[in-house]
Computed example of a mutant assay.
Amino acid sequence: MHDLTGFQRDLLYVIAGADRPSGQAVKTEVEQYYDEEINHGRLYPNLDTLVNRGLVEKGQLDRRTNYYTISGTGLEAIQERQEWESRYVEF
């Protein structure tokens, strides 16, 4: 997870917190957080990176729409990141 960009980590967290979101649903959620428009040229290559690294799995809802789910590897990466962060930040 340490080699992901902040944007990629945010995408991973959004996917982990949703039930098979489409790319558009991920885009909408991230746009609300960033308070700016995220173009497809930024979104989909980063989603593909997460898929290629085995952190996210991609499936097809229909001919035009893919969905994304967090993989076991992705969940482990998030847990390891949270453990690392908790060593430095306590709430």
Results as ranks from 00 to 15, higher is better:
residue 34 Y to P: 02
residue 2 H to D: 11
residue 57 E to T: 11
residue 55 L to W: 01
residue 84 W to P: 00
residue 61 L to M: 15
residue 71 S to E: 05
residue 62 D to Q: 04
residue 10 D to N: 10
residue 58 K to W: 00
residue 38 I to M: 11
residue 30 V to Y: 02
residue 43 L to G: 07
residue 44 Y to P: 03
residue 34 Y to Q: 11
residue 52 N to S: 14
residue 66 N to R: 10
residue 76 E to K: 06
residue 10 D to I: 06
residue 45 P to D: 13
residue 81 R to D: 11
residue 89 V to N: 09
residue 86 S to N: 10
residue 62 D to R: 06
residue 3 D to H: 11
residue 72 G to D: 15
residue 33 Y to W: 08
residue 47 L to E: 01
residue 7 F to C: 08
residue 88 Y to I: 07
residue 83 E to N: 13
residue 81 R to Y: 09
residue 48 D to K: 15
residue 2 H to A: 12
residue 35 D to W: 06
residue 72 G to C: 05
residue 54 G to Y: 02
residue 70 I to T: 09
residue 90 E to C: 04
residue 87 R to K: 12
residue 70 I to G: 01
residue 30 V to M: 15
residue 53 R to M: 02
residue 61 L to S: 15
residue 17 G to F: 01
residue 63 R to V: 05
residue 82 Q to Y: 07
residue 72 G to L: 08
residue 1 M to H: 11
residue 14 V to L: 12
residue 8 Q to V: 11
residue 50 L to A: 02
residue 61 L to K: 13
residue 24 Q to E: 04
residue 52 N to L: 02
residue 69 T to V: 11
residue 77 A to Q: 10
residue 78 I to V: 08
residue 79 Q to N: 14
residue 86 S to D: 12
residue 9 R to E: 09
residue 76 E to F: 03
residue 72 G to F: 06
residue 81 R to A: 08
residue 57 E to I: 04
residue 89 V to Q: 14
residue 67 Y to M: 05
residue 55 L to E: 03
residue 66 N to H: 15
residue 65 T to K: 08
residue 35 D to F: 06
residue 64 R to G: 09
